[in-house]
Design a protein around this nucleic acid. Sequence first.
DNA 1: AAGTATATGGGGTGTTTACCCTATTGACAT
DNA 2: ATGTCAATAGGGTAAACACCCCATATACTT
Lengths: 243, 243
Amino acid sequence: MKTSLKDNLKKKPRDSAPPPLPAADLRKTILIVEDQAAIREMITEVLKSYNQFKIVGTAAEGQAAVELALRLRPDVLLLDVLMPGLSGIEVLRRLNKSIPRMRVVVFSAKQEPQIIRGLIQEGMHGFVNKNSSLSELRQALDKVSQGENWYNDTFSQTVREALAKPNSHADSMIELLTPREREITVLIARSHSSKEVASQLNISLKTSENHRANLMRKLGVHDVAGLVRFAVRHGLVDPSIDP
Amino acid sequence: MKTSLKDNLKKKPRDSAPPPLPAADLRKTILIVEDQAAIREMITEVLKSYNQFKIVGTAAEGQAAVELALRLRPDVLLLDVLMPGLSGIEVLRRLNKSIPRMRVVVFSAKQEPQIIRGLIQEGMHGFVNKNSSLSELRQALDKVSQGENWYNDTFSQTVREALAKPNSHADSMIELLTPREREITVLIARSHSSKEVASQLNISLKTSENHRANLMRKLGVHDVAGLVRFAVRHGLVDPSIDP
DNA sequence: AAGTATATGGGGTGTTTACCCTATTGACAT
DNA sequence: ATGTCAATAGGGTAAACACCCCATATACTT
């Protein structure tokens, strides 16, 4: 785990009392990604009331999150994991190559080692469980936006567990897949046939079938059932949100 | 990060114009029940900022909710459904006999007809999906606290569906399956083909196929991917232990 | 400049699925 | 005793799948 790198910007002490802002708005910009509208709006309201961050956008779903992030290039990305469409992990996979200075705080209801591991690999800087206190979310955003890392209490234990088995051969497997192949993995695990995948991605049936065969060979699975288990294991699909 | 209630008296008018309060606090009292701490605190903050309700308590879990409600006897109960321990429905079952004047707004991520039916039966007065706008939550609390009922848009349709089929789609869906069918569900979700299932259970291929078709029809799934997601969701297979 | 990876396309083949239909047996219930 | 349900077994069909072969274009790396 890395620790604070850039501390060059002088900041006034801030905790419970937001001081009057300077003429130029130097607050960190933040993009909020959360699928449930009411929760998303509440997060927005609460963060606004902190008067410490500038909310530059919100997204309800992964694909929009990617596009908004690329356009707005926020300082901080507050990211939910379980979403319909692209999962939080997929969002990071597509982003952290392009906006290296962006800091990422994951705000999730679940805390599965396998998924945590993936998130770390994709450059998450902070993790807050939805089950932990709101002040922790604030602190995480605070620390992470300043270049530090922040994880909640129960987290480091989970991380140790996750990192304990270094390359248990199944964990690293997802990296064998290309972005396109991961995309297709998700679609297959969501019950789309090769034909549906083809028309959805505007490619020929044969290309869809070829991708399918290739990714299955890479993963060492030989049927849809195995592929779905793999996808669930790695947070590519959420079995509790049935498409 | 708490704002004192007394301060509210001298604050300038906000968003939707709460008029200056009279000397006696006549605001409706509200008890918030939500298992995820961060979400619970956000709801509290946001409702506080409305300056329209008096939050008399919060609970993170069903049993505590019942006890608090009986002790505080709030005007309004804002209730989550999916919680560890007692579910929202169970809370209502134990309550609405004892505090008949209490109004109930359910705030839920899911909107399953079966659950809705139970909630109506137990005397819910308002329903807001977590996926709908925050303003709807406010409006629902507003209306319901004043004696009206309030349901979100998609709700009445769901209600009709729920009341249409009295007992057809069973509560947990998995109980629709016979033991034999559950057995076969597990095998399919573990990547066994119909032929393998047949030889493993010493039945003919055709019987295996018939069981497969029957259980899929019962569950409303149409492919292996959907079946695996179902099995994972109900703990029939563990995706992190690959067979 | 050559090599590698990725994404795109195609041909072909045998197996498996998903879904339609009917039918028999035994068990348990009204 | 009659009926429904569970489990067994079969016929048939169109689609999808799993796996093999191949080619081309583009991009990045060495």
